[in-house]
């Protein structure tokens, strides 16, 4: 669902998809990125206040991201099939807020919803808009698992750069300036 900035509304909730977590995956992710005992050791985890193994919140969030990327690709392909040109999104500058609300256990199926809470034209990047997106994850009992507020960029379809901006953009595209910008 890469949309042009102009086409993004603040009402639609996009159901991105769902994912079922297995214990094997929970442990594999945690051994690499978050090896706390209640994420990697089923026996030890019984002594924790969770009463058993739970997924690292970062695992759930990474899966949420994957589900979103897959949804975007599928939606872009649908747009192209209809003869429409999908919008262009830019890299995310960050996450304003992430709240872990309920643990994810092996066998849980988590669904992810995306909506846009706020949009404005970027002051620093002409031709781009800044979005504040909300991703909410729910389990099969409809309990909120996490809620995140993510910043991202979306390109303007109808943007006409001024002569000065066009000159700057052309300069920025030259290899020597690209190198400078990267520093």
């Amino acid at each position: 669902m890469t949309l042009w900035f102009e086409d993004i509304d603040l009402v639609t909730v996009w159901p991105l998809g769902e994912y079922t977590f297995t214990e094997e995956e929970i442990i594999r992710f945690a051994k690499r990125y978050d090896p706390q005992y209640f994420h990697i050791d089923p026996e030890a985890a019984k002594h924790s206040h969770f009463g058993g193994i739970i997924a690292s919140g970062w695992h759930t969030v990474s899966i949420g991201h994957k589900v979103m990327v897959d949804f975007m690709y599928a939606h872009d392909a649908e747009q192209r099939e209809r003869g429409e040109e999908p919008g262009v999104s830019g890299p995310s500058p960050g996450v304003n807020k992430m709240e872990f609300k309920a643990p994810v256990r092996a066998g849980d199926t988590i669904r992810f919803d995306l909506s846009v809470k706020d949009k404005r034209k970027s002051n620093s990047l002409p031709g781009w808009g800044v979005l504040t997106s909300i991703i909410e994850a729910y389990n099969q009992q409809d309990e909120l698992v996490y809620r995140s507020e993510i910043a991202s960029f979306s390109k303007l379809r109808d943007y006409k750069p001024t002569l000065k901006e066009r000159a700057l953009l052309a300069m920025a595209a030259m290899p020597v300036f690209k190198k400078l910008l990267r520093k």
Binding site: G57, F100, P103
Partner: peptide, 13 residues
């Protein structure tokens, strides 16, 4: 003696 996370704020890449 960690008990898990509540979340995070202001993650900036």
């Amino acid at each position: 003696a960690g008990m898990g996370g509540l979340g995070f704020d202001n993650l900036k890449w």
